[in-house]
Design a protein around this nucleic acid. Structure first.
Lengths: 136, 136
DNA sequence: CGGGATCCGAACAGATACTG
DNA sequence: CAGTATCTGTTCGGATCCCG
């Protein structure tokens, strides 16, 4: 997600203005700015299964465009969560794999996924209740 | 976050088109579509400390607008993660508190924050390396 | 194959201004 | 106090074309 965080947008590579960060909140934003976007988690999950090439990732994640896959993997590389290996062959081949830090993040993501599956039904029901009560 | 997920945007309350969800990926999106946005996590963290009124939340989360706080709390209520209590007093008073499900999510979020604090420096250094290598 | 560069519509988030 | 409504800029993501 980079979750459009005006100051910390990864593209510009700007200095982290760090904003008001006196509380304990800032820690969470750091992660969510990385995994909160539309595709990053899916890439991490796929890479947690093993080394993948660019096209393999794209096929494994239905709906992702080349552009978003490029941007996503690049951010992950930049943050040291994914390692990129280029083979100067013809045709070219590029492998992506999680770093140690990336793997530790993958377990967190996996926990989140577990939680999600556990509470999926409850959330769905809560939504139906809410939607029913607010339909007029 | 709703992380702009075209099909699952909460506002429209549209039917969840559910897309291609045969793999194990869909579970994670469910959570991230809720906590991945810019403010939701901060609200959850603040509410994990106890019951809060609207203004208290707004003051506790510097930078959030009334609008975003309203939207965020409403989504959390809709998903059954937060409970809203309205007192018909003058001036009006509204309390927000985490539900049991919301609290279990808060612990997950707390774990994420811990991870973030642990690896913050490593990520920062990885970024500097990457930025240095790609500055030309 | 693995991208880079560009254009463009859509969703989001901030800033008011107004209400009960 | 606790919102709602509207207007507007920014950012994101998809599509397309091109390159090595």
């Amino acid at each position: 997600m980079s979750v459009r965080h005006t100051a910390v947008t990864p593209q510009a590579g700007g200095a982290q203005a760090a904003g008001p960060c006196g509380d304990d909140d800032c820690g969470i934003r750091e992660v969510l700015d990385r995994i909160g976007d539309k595709w990053t988690v899916l890439v991490i999950v796929e890479l947690s299964k093993g080394v993948r090439r660019f096209r393999e990732l794209q096929r494994a994640i239905p709906g992702i465009s080349q552009r978003m896959l490029t941007l996503t993997t690049r951010r992950l590389c930049r943050d040291g969560l994914v390692e990129r290996t280029v083979y100067a062959t013809i045709p070219p081949q590029v492998d992506y794999r999680l770093t140690a830090m990336g793997q530790s993040l993958a377990t967190m993501v996996s926990d989140l996924a577990d939680w999600s599956r556990e509470h999926k039904d409850a959330i769905g029901e809560a939504r139906r209740h809410w939607d029913a009560a607010h339909t007029e």
